[in-house]
Amino acid sequence: MRRMSALAYTSEKQGDPWRIVPDLLASRGLLRDVVWRELRARYRNAMMGFLWAVVQPVLMMAILLFVFGYLLGDIMQARGLRSERPSAVFLLCGLVPWQFLAVALACGTHSLIESQELIKKVYFPREIIPLAAVVNCLVNFFVGFVTLLVFIIVRDGVLALGAGLFCVPFIFAIQFMLVLGLALLLSALNVHYRDVGYMVDVVLAFGFYATPIFYPLGMVSSRLDGFLFNLYMLNPMANLVTAYRQALLDNVFPEPMLLLRPLVVAVLCLLIGAVVFRRNAPTLADYL
C-alpha cells in the first residue's frame, strides 16, 4: 500500500506549482534517459559525431572573424568605430554563450510539439521535455567552452586563466536559469499559439545584434546616451556576455551590476515560466 500511495495520481493536483520540484525529483531517471536518447540519436548518423560540437562554434567564429575582422574591419576602423580588430578569442567568448541561448531557446520552444506523440499518450511531468531540450544544449556549450579555453591558453598561456575562471559557474548559473525560464514559458505558449515559434526566431536574430558579440560593450556605451544605453543593458545577454569576457579575458571579477541585472531577470523568467508552464501542463495534450 505504501508503494501504491507513492504512485497515487490525483487529477486535481496536476496544476499545482508546488509539485514541480517533487515531481521532477521523482522522475529524474526519465530526464536522464530522455536526454541520453536525444544525444545518442543526434550524433548516431553523423559521421563526425560529437566533433560537430567543436567544429560548429569554431566555424561560426571563423566566419565572423572573416566578416568583421577583415571585410568590415578596415571600414570600421577607418570610421573610427573600432580601435582594434576583434580577435578570435574575443568573438568565441561572445559566441559560445550566445549560441547556447539561441539553440536552447529554439529547441525548447518547439520541444513540446516535437514530443507530442509522447505527451498525448503517457503521463509524466511535462517539464521534463523542455528541460531535456535545454540540458541537451549543455553538451554543445561545454564543448564550445573547452574550445574557448584552449584558444585562450594557446594565445596567452595557461597563466592567463586565473581567478576569473571561478566566476564562470555563477555567470553560467544565471544564464541557465534565464534560458530554462524562457524555454518553459515559450514552449507552453507555443502549444497554444504557434506564432510564438516564429517570433522566437525573429527575436533571436535581433538579439544577435543587440548583444555585444562581435563588438565590445564599450563601443555601445560610447555611442548611446543614458536612456538608450540603459534600455540596451536591459538585455540580460548583453550583461552576461560582458561578464564572461571580463572573467575570462580580463581575468577580473565582473562588475556586480553585470550579474545583478540578469539575475533579477533570470529569476523572474524562471518563476513566471515555471508557473505558467505548470498551469498549462495538465491539458497540454488537448491542444497538441
Binding site: A8, Y9, T10, S11, E12, Q14, K121, T283
Partner: peptide, 15 residues
C-alpha cells in the same frame, strides 16, 4: 492515463 485532466470532477488512480 493522466494524459489530460478533467474540467470538472476528479480522477484518482492509486497505482
Amino acid at each position: 492515463a493522466g494524459v489530460t485532466v478533467p474540467t470538472t470532477g476528479r480522477v484518482n488512480v492509486y497505482g
